[in-house]
Design a binder for these strands. Structure first.
Length: 648
RNA sequence: GCCGCAGUAGCUCAGUGGUAGAGCGCACCCUUGGUAAGGGUGAGGUCGGGAGUUCAAUCCUCCCCUGCGGCACCA
């Protein structure tokens, strides 16, 4: 029998017979390791303990202490355990796929009856039984035809389809624990008992299309989360509670920011408090854009279909547009218009007015463009995904040679804004040419290279998303990470040579001839509506002072102080600070609680002592301690604090 | 759009085949209280919309609308 050499993490090497398993290697090291072992890394690849090793390799034995492989295996085997539990409880159920995902896994089932929340409890109990049975996991590589025949016999058509989709050179691996059987590439734990029985939870059921294809059957997907121990599970459940507390829909109601109602689904009724955030943010963005060399325009909401036909939206995007038909007097046919779903075609119209010279480029044309899109009903979500919204949109008309420098300039612009708004963790993704595309390979090469170079020149790394670009050009996406670790794609920059072509935009170059400009579609926030939703969740409603809709409440402790309270409010208002008086017939405890719950950053309390000394007692949101300040001092301090970051 | 679940007072929710209830909020009164809910009284509901079953529907059935969780979508 031939020998192989395995190298251990400490650098030692040993010879073993070829075909030895990682389990044997672990047992050879120590019986305790053999028991604790869950899998191995073989030349970096995740390797099942039971798989034979046929060649020289670097090997490391994983135990539950190794987070990544441990969680991977726990979640993966729980998917199988859940599928077995489901089939034991509901034998008419057909299994499909069940991958590891996020903090857990899901498994899709085909069953006529819907799963109920009570069913989840029963499934969870059955899973615990299976774990406690400590059934050994066994896998075998089968010939493809045998596996297909097996699943045809057992009535699992989805498995047959999966096998047919596995590339020909890959082994068909059959999996068992107990008598239950599944198809799976592995690796797996040694037995079901290695899964912690108290660190997982089934979370919810939802519909999901087979293979993610909306033309295929809708399956039932059960989601679960799993960790290495009970405490981690508990921490995860607490994180979910925290996210629920931060939900902008809940805070929006509590802080009286906005509401939505069924006569206008996907559109927002902004209340005074919410609109204050909106306009404060918009004023800030407008100042930033002016400083950065943008011109601002405003273009029509309702535009005849003729323009949308020229721009290509009518063909490609019609089902997402609000169509407005107008029956004009004596007209044979109704005039057909659409609410603009985006601003770019209108911006080209502005560009096309008059003759443009190369000296006009780059031309940075911004609009806080109100757009309406008929989003699918299932996509709507609070103010994050709506049908009526305003983008911080701009189009940079430039030459191909200017793409790189304009992109670099934009990245720096965006970085400054994210920093001002308190977002320090963000990353860039570069989406490259998709399979279905227009344009020459040379222009794609140049555009992709320009975007990549611009990132590097600005000092940022980027991740490539192969084939994810738009059909007309590559794009950058800017992704924020929020306070509780969630990611939000906000900023974007897309290279577009297509629309100038379709709408016949041109400029006179130095050679005296007409040339086609390139458009860079770009946004920093994305939409104000969505970004404000993100801000609310990021700060759990406790917005920075300059953005807070109600910045200060001045509260009287006794009614004899009411006059002085009004004087303090007037002094603050005179400096542009959003301050209100609370002179209601309530105790100071009550007022403090109410305004704390309402996320007012500063409460100034005034009793007779303050009236006599012409001071205020300052209480900051989230702080138990109070401080004294003179009236003049607090007005000056808060005025400084209320200044937007770009004006400091 | 698809699958599932839900819709009762401004908010959070309970409830019943015989036309509804709590807490908070709101209004008024008492109370002038020093940093997260002082006390009392009162007003407030076409039980999401429509149709059906029934002597009788907020409750049962069907259709629609909206929301929630996913999926698909996000040019």
């Amino acid at each position: 029998m031939s020998q192989i050499t395995l190298t251990f993490p400490d650098g030692n090497t040993r010879a073993f017979p070829a075909g030895i398993t990682a389990a044997d290697v672990a047992a050879d090291i120590s019986p305790s390791l053999a028991k604790k072992a869950i899998s191995a890394q073989l030349d970096g690849a995740h390797w099942d303990l039971a798989w034979p090793i046929e060649a020289d390799a670097a090997i490391a034995i994983n135990t539950l202490k190794d987070d990544a492989p441990a969680l991977e295996l726990i979640r993966h085997d729980l998917a199988h355990i859940m599928a077995r539990a489901v089939q034991e409880l509901y034998p008419d159920t057909k299994v499909t796929i069940g991958p590891v995902r996020d903090q857990g896994w899901f498994y899709d089932f085909d069953r006529t009856e819907p799963f109920t929340p009570e069913d989840l409890g029963a499934i969870e109990a059955k899973m615990k039984e299976i774990i406690n049975a400590r059934d050994a996991v066994r896998t075998e590589v089968w010939p493809r035809e045998d596996a297909i025949a097996h699943y045809e016999k057992t009535g699992e058509p989805y498995k047959v389809e999966l096998i047919n989709r596995i590339p020909g050179n890959e082994p068909i691996r059959m999996y068992w624990h107990g008598d239950w059987q599944d198809l799976c590439r592995g690796p797996h734990l040694q037995n079901t008992g290695q899964v912690p029985a108290d660190a997982f939870k089934l979370t919810h059921v939802a519909g999901a299309y087979w293979l993610g294809d909306s033309t295929r059957p809708m399956l039932q997907r059960i989601y679960g989360v799993a960790f290495k121990n009970r405490n981690d599970l508990k921490a995860h459940m607490q994180m979910l509670e925290e996210a629920a507390k931060r939900d902008h829909r809940k805070l929006g109601r509590e802080m009286d920011l906005f509401h939505m109602q069924e006569e206008a689904p996907g559109q927002i009724f902004w209340h005074p408090n919410g609109w204050t955030i909106y306009t404060t943010l918009q004023d800030y963005m407008r100042r930033k854009q002016r400083v950065d060399g943008y011109v601002e325009v405003n273009t029509p909401q309702v535009v005849n279909r003729v323009l949308w036909e020229k721009s290509g939206h009518w063909d490609n995007y019609q089902e997402n547009m609000f169509i407005v038909e107008v029956d004009e007097d004596h007209a044979r046919e109704k005039t057909v218009n659409a609410l603009k779903p985006m601003n770019c075609p209108c911006h080209v119209q502005v560009f096309n007015q008059g003759l443009k010279s190369y000296r006009d480029l780059p031309l940075r044309m911004a609009e806080f463009g109100s757009c309406n899109r008929y989003e699918p009903s299932g996509a709507l979500h609070g103010i994050m995904r709506v049908r009526g919204f305003t983008q911080d949109d701009a189009h940079i008309f430039c030459t191909e040679e200017q793409i790189e420098s304009e992109t670099k300039k934009f990245i720096e612009f965006l970085a400054g804004i994210y920093a001002d708004l308190g977002f320090h963790a963000w990353s860039i993704k570069l989406s490259t040419r998709p399979e279905k595309r227009i344009g020459t390979e040379e222009s794609w090469d140049h555009a992709e290279e320009s975007l990549g170079n611009a990132c590097k020149a600005a000092g940022y790394d980027f991740e490539i998303q192969e084939g994810e670009g738009a059909f007309y050009g590559p794009k950058l996406e800017f992704v924020l990470t929020d306070a509780i670790g969630r990611q939000w794609q906000c900023g974007t920059l897309q290279v577009d040579p297509n629309l100038p072509e379709r709408l016949d935009a041109n400029f006179v170059a130095a050679d005296g001839a007409k040339h086609r400009p390139v458009m860079l579609h770009r946004a920093v926030l994305g939409s104000f509506e969505r970004f404000i939703g993100i801000l609310i969740e990021e700060h759990a409603g406790k917005l920075p002072f300059w953005l807070a809709p109600r910045q200060v409440v001045v509260a009287s402790i006794v009614s004899d102080a009411d006059g002085y309270v009004n004087e303090v409010v007037a002094a603050l208002n005179a400096k542009g600070i959003r301050a209100e008086a609370d002179t209601r017939n309530e105790k100071i405890n009550y007022k403090v609680r109410e305004h704390s719950v309402g996320k007012v950053p500063v409460i100034l309390a005034c009793g007779m002592k303050e009236v006599e000394e012409r001071t205020v007692t300052v209480r900051r949101l989230g702080e138990k301690q109070t401080a004294q300040a003179t009236l003049g001092q607090i007005v000056a301090d808060l005025a400084a604090e209320a200044t937007a970051p770009d004006l400091r």
